[in-house]
Simulated scan of single mutants.
Amino acid sequence: MTQQSQLLVSAIVVFDIDGVVRDVSNSYRRAIADTVEHFTQGAYRPSLADIDVLKSEGIWNNDWEASQELIYRYFEGQGQQRNSLALDYQEIVRFFQSRYRGSDPENWTGYICNEPLLLQSHYLNELSSVGIAWGFFSGATRGSANYVLEKRLGLQSPVLVAMEDAPSKPDPTGLIATVQKLTNNFLDNCTSVVYVGDTVADMYTVEKARSLAPNRAWIGVGVLPPHVQASRQRRDAYAQTLKVAGAKVVFDNVQELTPREIQKLL
């Protein structure tokens, strides 16, 4: 942060992590499907499209809660009332984590170990070199976020607001807190903020931040997660959903948001 703060910062870019920095279609989303399948006794395994439909509602950023909601909705479809179901949320969390992190809490062996990276550290260095400050606001746990940022990407103590630090999106508290950490009294209150995310909740977060801190320009940028790019129809539909939710522009990959593209948005 010291090197960044000494530069003439032209903008602040805050990145979501899941679906932006790393591909979670075969990790987090696979863990959701495993969890729902387990707690419905094998009767229902949601597809990636099913999970996208739920997340398009803009309020299911927490994947543990999303898993629980899909379980509830399955049983409601079978004529049962959710208040009659004996679901244990902590058991849902434990099962999910056993798939995502693995059964050993110290040495992770789960799906997290095989997440493809969607961003490389040289891209962040390029942003820094032209005076663009950057950080991360994610609904992932701090342990999971640091695993990819520090262990995989090699970043040294990056600015990060994670699940434990703020309410779940679309509440903008975490986004605003990330910006406050980045500014650290070096930037004025009018520096534009770009938030890069892959879900409707991310775009709603930008809208809510704009209403709470109207002195800044808050710009939502959408990124298409890899799993929706398998077909043109699905890709276009997902991009349109993000634009309707507030994305000013949508990219296939986060690294397409170059300094030149950022300048165009300001």
Rank of each mutant, 00 (worst) to 15 (best):
Q90Y: 12
N114L: 03
F95L: 01
R101D: 12
F75V: 07
Y100L: 15
L87Y: 10
F75L: 09
F75H: 11
Y89N: 03
E91W: 00
L85R: 02
F95G: 04
G79T: 06
F96C: 13
R101G: 12
D88L: 01
V93Q: 10
L118V: 05
E115P: 05
R73F: 13
E106W: 04
G79S: 09
Q97A: 13
W108I: 01
P116D: 14
Y111T: 04
Y100T: 05
S84P: 09
W108D: 11
S84V: 10
Q81W: 03
V93A: 13
N107R: 05
S84G: 12
G102W: 02
N107E: 11
G102M: 03
L87K: 15
I112F: 14
Q78L: 01
R101N: 14
G79L: 08
G77Q: 10
E106L: 09
Q80Y: 07
R94W: 01
E106R: 02
R99L: 08
C113D: 09
R82N: 14
Q81N: 11
G110S: 07
F96P: 01
R73C: 06
I112P: 06
E91H: 05
Q81M: 00
F95V: 02
C113F: 01
G102Y: 08
E76W: 05
I112Y: 09
V93L: 15
Q90D: 06
E91S: 00
L85E: 07
E76V: 12
A86C: 04
P105G: 13
Y111W: 15
Q78S: 00
S98C: 10
R101M: 10
G77E: 07
D104S: 12
L118H: 06
R101E: 13
Y89S: 04
Y74T: 05
Q90N: 00
G110N: 11
W108G: 05
F95C: 03
G102S: 04
P116W: 09
I112R: 02
N107Q: 13
W108Q: 06
Q90T: 11
Q80P: 02
S98V: 06
Y74R: 03
A86N: 15
Y111S: 07
P116M: 11
Q81V: 10
R99A: 09
D88H: 11
Q90G: 01
S103N: 10
F95K: 02
E91K: 04
R82G: 12
Y74V: 08
R94Y: 00
E76G: 05
L87S: 15
S103H: 08
E76K: 05
L117S: 06
Q80W: 09
S98R: 00
G77C: 07
R99G: 09
Q80T: 09
G79I: 13
L85Y: 00
P116T: 11
N114M: 07
P116Y: 05
G110T: 10
Q80R: 08
W108E: 14
Q81L: 04
P105L: 14
Y74P: 01
G110C: 12
G110I: 07
E115N: 15
G77S: 12
R73V: 13
L118W: 01
Y89A: 04
L85P: 02
D104W: 03
L85W: 01
G77H: 00
F95H: 08
R82T: 08
P105Q: 05
C113Q: 14
Y100S: 06
